[in-house]
């Protein structure tokens, strides 16, 4: 079912992009974003109430994209659902033809627009991976009950090479692979040196033979955005020279500079052993994705 899986298994350098569902019930916005990404990327991640802000459900938006002929990656966080709801949604997603699932813990509820809610965190992201894998490969849910039909899902996980403790980051990646991850999408990469350290440790441990790693990139829109991400977003590593580059161009050229940095990063990632693709998170800027992919020499995409 997963187009992304086919691309990666063929050994092609994969391209995925992120699509944030609207803060409303408007399907047109989802479909318009889908149109922007069609034929530019192999699969589209749909965020699950990202930064703990209420949006259209990822499952619904994925279904809309699937109907429009795209290959959606359902992002699923453990913050909002207990194991009953998680397993139920996994079955539903597969029944609706969604072929990819990304297992996440989710941004903490205190960051969003419902800070008074309760965080569920019944399972963590690694236990969720394990659960999905058992549903798919064993046909069983937690507790051992058998499914009448197994979900067909390509299972993903996130990794942040830039968080601490550094020495434990690769251990955790290995744990996610053991739990069931088929592919990994990383936190946005700006510090290529630190990313290289991380990926070569992973290569030394033979991990890219067991999992496809897609490097995450986010085009910067302004020096302000760069500074905000550097100073305010935990686990985000933006070197000073990137901030300086963004500051060094006139306002009307800033977005162009952001795209240029992003394209350069992708070109470096393409050459790096252990990297199987790129994941472009253009936050509320899906229009930029096509240009980035084209300038990185990644068009045309292989057919569906």
């Amino acid at each position: 079912m997963s187009h992304l899986k086919q691309i990666l298994e063929k050994g092609e350098f994969a391209v995925t992009a992120e699509c944030g569902p609207p803060k409303g019930a408007d399907s047109e916005i989802v479909l318009r974003k889908g149109d922007l990404l069609r034929d530019k990327v192999d699969a589209v991640n749909v965020t699950d109430n990202q930064t703990a802000i209420v949006r259209m459900s990822s499952l619904a938006a994925c279904t809309l994209l699937r109907g429009a002929g795209l290959d959606p990656v359902l992002q699923m966080v453990v913050r909002d659902r207990n194991r009953i709801a998680l397993q139920s949604d996994i079955l539903g997603a597969s029944a609706l033809g969604i072929g990819n699932l990304l297992c996440l813990s989710g941004d903490h509820q205190s960051f969003g627009n419902q800070p008074q809610t309760v965080g569920v965190f019944d399972l963590d992201s690694i236990q969720l991976l394990q659960t999905v894998k058992a549903m798919r490969d064993e046909g069983t849910i937690l507790g051992g009950d058998r499914l009448s039909a197994r979900p067909d899902l390509f299972i993903g996980a996130a990794a942040n090479p830039f968080a601490d403790p550094l020495e434990f980051r690769v251990t955790r990646l290995a744990k996610k692979i053991r739990a069931g991850a088929d592919f990994i999408q990383t936190q946005c990469i700006y510090n290529l040196d630190r990313f290289k350290t991380w990926i070569s440790t992973a290569v030394d441990r033979g991990l890219p033979e067991k999992v496809y790693i897609l490097g995450g990139v986010t085009p910067l829109k302004s020096p302000g955005m760069a500074r905000y991400m550097k100073n305010r977003v935990s686990g985000m590593d933006i070197p000073d020279e990137i901030v300086k580059r963004m500051e060094g161009v006139p306002k009307e050229k800033q977005r162009e500079e952001g795209i240029r940095i992003c394209v350069e990063t992708i070109l470096r990632l393409k050459e790096m052993p252990g990297v199987s693709g790129v994941h472009i998170m253009a936050i509320e800027w899906e229009e930029a994705v096509g240009e980035i992919v084209e300038r990185a020499g990644l068009l045309p995409r292989p057919g569906f």
Binding site: F111, D124, S125, N160, K175, G235
Partner: peptide, 19 residues
Amino acid sequence: SKQLFNGPCGGSVDGRCEI
């Protein structure tokens, strides 16, 4: 903060919690 049994999450920086 996220009750992770298999942590740490990607928000752990310098031994501090992202929350």
